[in-house]
Simulated scan of single mutants.
Amino acid sequence: MSSQSDLSALHTRLHSEGFAFLGAETMDGLLDDPQSLDDWDAFTESWNDLAPDAYLAAKGRKRRRRHATFEITADGAITRNPQQPHVQTLQNNKLQGGIERWFVPIRPKIADGASFRRILQFSHTLFGSLAPRIPQWHVEAHQFRIEASIGEAGEPTPEGVHRDGVDYVLVLLIDRTNIESGVTTIHACNGELLGSFTLTHPLDAALVDDAKVSHGVTAVTPFDPEKSAHRDVLVVTFKAAA
């Protein structure tokens, strides 16, 4: 199947079901072989340079992250904003909603690089086709590393099953080392389980229509307790600009 056919099928599924899981091979085609880009290795290795999430640490939990925001117009022009806080309502995030959370920014050489921009462009093409009347999108990007050890499971979504309070979400797996579990679950408004899958291979992806469904990820633990364990993802959210 061609990447154009894959994109059309993905559009249809998101429109009708509100979510989709894409395996790495399909996602690789949709992103036009991003691993061939000159900066791909630097892009993926940047997950080794994330900062501790001080807000989550205050709750007795831990993860690493960086954050950036952008504006993308209907013609696909991308502008990075000055650093802004990440804000969610208490309704969407009962653990950390209702406060401004300032995170260490994604490094410019990563955010401006070909790999990162290709992911943003793909997301805009897909999500823009689902909402063609939106003239401008507010986009947030989050680099996450969830670490796990024996006696201390990692929590990809410590707030539990939730909505992000946006229009669309892409979760792209970058790396998964010595990790078991981490099952993504998708739920209807009434809590009914609609589907579940596990991002296992780099470039596996979950796509979500945030208005239609909620999502969560189960805790992760290490296969081998003697080795380090982590789950790296890039989360990109699109919301119609005010």
Score class of each variant (00 low, 15 high):
D209E: 05
I150K: 14
L207S: 04
R176L: 06
P82Q: 03
S2C: 13
F21S: 03
Q88K: 08
I106Q: 00
P222R: 11
T200W: 11
Q83I: 03
D112N: 14
G191W: 09
E17V: 01
T26F: 04
L130Y: 10
D53P: 02
A242I: 12
W40F: 15
V220N: 00
S2L: 11
R66F: 03
S5W: 12
D204R: 02
G29V: 01
L95T: 02
D204H: 11
V217W: 03
V236S: 00
E45K: 14
G128R: 03
V220I: 15
S2K: 12
H215S: 12
F70I: 09
V213H: 06
P222M: 04
P135Q: 04
V213W: 04
L194F: 07
L203M: 10
T198S: 10
Q35A: 13
R63L: 00
E100G: 03
N190Q: 06
L7E: 07
A74D: 09
V139A: 05
G128H: 11
F19M: 05
V236Q: 02
A77H: 15
T89L: 11
P222D: 12
H142D: 08
S115L: 04
V217F: 13
G97W: 13
T237D: 06
P108W: 10
L199G: 05
N81E: 14
R231T: 12
A77Y: 14
Q96K: 00
T200C: 08
F223C: 08
V104H: 12
R13I: 06
I99F: 12
P132K: 02
S2G: 11
A148T: 06
N178K: 03
E147N: 05
F70S: 08
A54R: 12
M27K: 07
E147H: 07
N93Q: 03
I110G: 01
P105F: 05
D49Y: 13
P156H: 07
D28F: 10
T73Q: 07
L234C: 07
Q88Y: 09
G216T: 09
S16D: 15
F223A: 06
R65G: 05
P222Y: 02
S16L: 08
G97Y: 12
D164I: 01
H187E: 04
E71H: 15
L199P: 07
R13N: 04
W47P: 04
G98P: 13
T69G: 03
L37W: 08
T12D: 15
P156V: 06
E71W: 14
K94G: 09
N93C: 02
A77T: 15
F116H: 12
P222G: 04
F223S: 01
R107V: 07
T221K: 10
D175F: 09
S36F: 13
V171R: 04
N190I: 00
P158Y: 06
V166N: 11
P202R: 06
G113M: 08
E45L: 13
E226I: 09
T69Q: 15
K212R: 15
